[in-house]
Design a binder for these strands. Structure first.
Lengths: 301, 301
DNA sequence: TAACAAATCGTTCAAATCGTCCAAATCGTC
DNA sequence: GACGATTTGGACGATTTGAACGATTTGTTA
């Protein structure tokens, strides 16, 4: 993996839940191997720390803190990540999948990219294998549950950093629709864009969305359409909802594989996107986030 | 955030009202799990301590000494908690609800108690208000989503204490059923009882449960039945599933408001419970956790 | 290149924890 | 209630730990 990853004494001390002085002493006593910079700073090899911690019974508060935040950008191979995630989901390895998905945040990957370039391809492959009869619905459900779990964990992370007043966005999956995964991804993306998403979840009637418009006064409405059973009734109910949103000046973002070209041609909407990246851009344009520049030495932590 | 995940033997001894030597002995006897520093100091995970306090009836003097955020008094008023949770859910205050639900873990409350005495009553009141037309489905969905989110966060906490090999349990909500909340609670309860739950989620066909039996070889199968649309087809499919589980010696635990007395009278099952406390007891009996040796003189023989 | 903030260095020293001993308290059984 | 087995917890010196200090190194910004 990242064989050449160095970590500092402070990082290790935080990860293991002991004091910095103790880490220094362990290095000096030869318990932990370390290299030295010409100036005398200790540089511990990540692999050494992990190995020693696992082999001996060292305390391990949060080994995840040891993983170096890769330089944001092209250093992360999304294709490989997606393939690894697929393999983990295929075998029901929840721990591995969680590690992969939650690791993307540390790598600085955007939630929209995680959705479009990692999770979507992996779940698509699962779906294809299911259609081909090579796996059971069980495997697809298990994979979905594992993804959901990881997404909730990511959301929890983002929520803990939530700060000022955020505009409200409301959305969900209309009635008859079951797939909660997409809506959960939307929630994550909007959260990252500075919104305060209210996910009404799967199987929500159109009337409830209208109710939410008047009660929550959102500045954005999203709908995830996975499949449309009866286009006629769907269209009628949707148009009613859209009209009400339009009257209040609330933009409506729709997406999902249920929106065929034919269907979309007769649907009014503010924006349509076949991916979360599009949604993220649209949401950001509605509510541009203030950005700050870090000062000093923002490495590590 | 979780900076104080590790506690010392002295802290635990003060919190539980026992001597330091006793804590050390418990660790050495494997009653309390702990890591060791290279110097020999024991490092106890706060979560491990809370779990043991929760599962056995350990003395619980003052948990606040373990962590400033813990409540000073050990008496937790579940009724008040449930009422507060209801109010938070009713108004869509996700942050408050999360705080209440996730706080129960720190109070040493068992997951089953959280489910039966806190979440179930609160959601029941929401359901009643909905039936009376005083709130919309929207509010019920929003409340469910908020609960789900908090439960996932709790699960994440429990999962982070990755332990040894655990027996596998499989379960979910059969086809046509949408309520994921109950199945999520089951997952949490089983996790706390030392199992490794695989939740197949809502809307899972009976055939997939059978598939899971042969492929995952679980030692427990759970089914959450929220509503039964067509008793005849339901019964036929269920019986087939039960027979297969029975042949393999896998116990079947069922529960949920969909199981009326009439229905249950013609259903075979290993155990039925109208609450998570019952399930927790049953699961613990199947897979007893390490306990202290019985006192007194060893039996003759 | 110079300036600056943050992180790390080496050192000291008080506090906490270790392992071990043994007496007192507690429990199950007779 | 008496007995024996077991658990408990205080005390001891030896060891480990971690916070504080000023001096130095490191990486970014101007």
């Amino acid at each position: 993996m990242d064989d050449l990853a160095y970590v500092s004494t402070a990082q290790v001390s935080r990860a293991l839940g002991v004091g910095v002085t103790t880490i220094k002493r362990w290095v000096d006593d030869g318990i932990l191997p370390a290299h030295r910079t010409p100036g005398g700073h200790r540089k511990l090899l990540l692999a050494d720390v992990l190995r020693l911690v696992r082999e001996n019974d060292f305390p391990q508060l949060d080994l995840a803190r040891l993983h170096p935040s890769l330089p944001s950008g092209s250093a992360v191979d999304e294709t490989k990540l997606s393939r690894d995630l697929y393999a983990a989901l295929r075998h029901g390895d929840g721990a591995a999948a969680r590690f992969l998905i939650e690791g993307t945040e540390r790598c600085g990957m955007r939630a929209a990219t995680l959705a479009d370039a990692v999770i979507a391809p992996a779940m698509h492959r699962i779906g294809v294998e299911w259609e081909q009869g090579r796996i059971d619905v069980m495997h697809e459900h298990r994979a979905t549950q594992i993804c959901l779990e990881s997404l909730y964990a990511l959301k929890s992370h983002l929520l803990s950093q939530a700060t000022q007043a955020r505009p409200v966005a409301v959305g969900g999956v209309p009635e008859g629709q079951l797939h909660a995964l997409a809506s959960q991804l939307v929630e994550l993306v909007l959260l990252e864009c500075g919104w305060s998403p209210v996910n009404l979840g799967p199987n929500t009637p159109f009337s409830s969305f209208r109710k939410a418009l008047t009660e929550l006064r959102p500045r954005l409405l999203w709908l995830s359409i996975h499949r449309v059973e009866e286009p006629t009734t769907f269209l009628a109910a949707y148009r009613e909802l859209y009209d009400e949103a339009h009257k209040s000046g609330i933009p409506v973002a729709i997406g999902g594989p249920g929106l065929t070209d034919d269907l979309r041609a007769v649907m009014p909407y503010t924006t349509y996107g076949d991916g979360m990246t599009h949604l993220a851009d649209f949401a950001s344009s509605l509510h541009p986030r203030p950005r700050r520049r870090p000062r000093g030495r923002p490495r590590g932590t």
